[in-house]
Design a protein around this nucleic acid. Structure first.
Lengths: 189, 189
DNA sequence: TGAAAACCTTGACATTTGTCAAAGCTGGCG
DNA sequence: CGCCAGCTTTGACAAATGTCAAGGTTTTCA
């Protein structure tokens, strides 16, 4: 399981990154079944997870207690509630596995030790942050500038795996539309 | 004009931050009238701007060539197209002043020199990035979980200055709704 | 300061999207 | 492997939002 993370880091920092093994030591492997809650809103987020295998959903509740998903993260990526994690604030979002997952978790203490002792890790963190931000920006632009149909087309172009792999219900809540609307729009294409 | 930036940096790094003057040297003051294009999509974003005074709009065009705004940034904040700026990629977004502005611009060269020579500047950059990311996350959650009316209420609670200060048209495009809908919803409250 | 342009509001209507319900399907888990 | 909770699709209708148009108001800038 650690192999996947090792490769991920090498891809980013170059093969001669000296402290990879040192970095890996701080991560705790976790295997969880699908539908496992990793973070409940109101709690402080204690970990950053690397997803070695599986898929995870970040979601909030709307006024009628429906789950609306702000983000979906596949394997070989990072997931957390960075705002809560960084400032020890109560999280505003929930995180849950969508499939059985193999995760590598690092807690705040480990994270900070790494930031101090492994200079390259700061770089990795910044890359996580930049990638998460870029993702949000693109996604925001779909919401302000596209209607439901165009968002579905956007998803097919830029996130094609979501449609094969995930339930319609989940994808609809990611697009901010109802399951029925998604079902009808897909049959139009 | 530099005073505003100086205070901003001191607020973040503490009063004894040793290199504030060194930092300020890298910024070029710019005064521009309203409706000045700072970045056109397709171009590479050459600067990060600190807004000492005024207000700026980050926007894209929808399928009918309407301007839809992904972000609005007021004075005492940073604005850029960080993805384009960092990777020298063509920008996907446009940036334009909404009011007469006093800006402090730093280019890529200055930015990188600062990252190398002033260790605290790396911290400032990370804080810009984290704040921008947090902003996007909250905003995304309004889109996936709220209808138009709830987004207007959200704006009144969390961005009250926008409604006083900006045109209805601009605010509507920020909320992803039509001007007419915003006008009607506001009269309902 | 005054003319032109842009903006705001309101009405009527069109379109999109949501809601509820029902029936068939599927896949996760015992 | 089979059952059942949960998912998907479809229809009919309701609600939300968009579009177009017109008239009044405000803002801009020459």
């Amino acid at each position: 399981m650690l192999d996947v993370l090792k490769q991920h880091i090498i891809d980013r920092l170059g093969k001669d990154a000296p402290n990879v093994e040192e970095v890996l030591r701080h991560f705790k492997p976790v295997r969880v079944r699908r539908n496992t809650i990793l973070l409940r809103h109101g709690e402080v987020c204690k970990y950053v997870w690397f997803i070695a295998k599986g898929c995870v959903q970040v979601f909030v509740y709307d006024a009628e207690a429906n789950e609306m998903t702000r983000d979906i993260v596949l394997e070989n990526n990072w997931v957390s509630e960075l705002i809560s994690f960084g400032n020890r604030q109560p999280a505003t979002e929930n995180i849950r596995t969508v499939e059985p997952c193999e995760l590598l978790a690092i807690d705040r203490e480990g994270f900070q030790k790494m930031m101090e002792t492994v200079p390259q890790f700061e770089m990795v963190y910044r890359q996580i942050l930049e990638a998460s931000y870029a993702n949000s920006v693109y996604r925001l632009n779909t919401f302000v500038s596209m209607d439901a149909l165009d968002r579905v087309k956007w998803l097919m172009e830029f996130k094609p795996r979501f449609l094969n792999r995930l339930s319609n219900k989940l994808v609809a809540s990611y697009l901010g539309i109802s399951q029925e609307t998604l079902s009808r729009l897909k049959s139009k294409l």
